[in-house]
């Protein structure tokens, strides 16, 4: 599956990475070769094979519905770039 610069630009936008055309051209080359390597997967006959998401065949453990956390807002917000009145600040979101 060949990679186009537009694929890179699209992925960069979805992943919220700033990317100009010059960067994109460099990535097309790198990513194209990585994908060519990855494309070898298509050679494998996986007919009737179930996908494996986790290396162990275990199942989800459930947690009791209990409140175990206390308010640590000030502690957690010490590492935040911008807060005011307990809220995280971001540039205005237009809805």
């Amino acid at each position: 599956m060949a990679l186009e610069p537009s694929d890179v630009m699209r992925a960069a936008h979805l992943a919220r990475l700033a990317m100009n055309d010059v960067d994109a051209a460099g990535y097309v080359d790198d990513l194209g070769r990585i994908l060519a390597m990855v494309d070898q997967l298509q050679e494998v006959d996986t007919h009737g094979v179930a996908p494996l998401a986790h290396p162990l065949d275990s199942t989800q453990r459930l947690r009791a519905d209990e409140v175990t956390e206390r308010d640590q807002r000030d502690h957690f917000q010490r590492v935040a770039p911008a807060v005011e009145n307990g809220l995280y600040l971001v540039p205005r979101v237009v809805e």
Binding site: E66, D71, F76, G86
Partner: peptide, 29 residues
């Protein structure tokens, strides 16, 4: 109407001070 969140032990009570019921898991630390 659970007491705690779906994936963390923080309270789901309505109307608390902003971010006082957002624990490490809820914040995605």
């Amino acid at each position: 109407a659970t007491k705690s969140k779906i994936f963390s032990g923080a309270s789901t009570a309505f109307g608390a001070e902003p971010n006082s019921q957002a624990c490490a898991v809820d914040l995605g630390l």
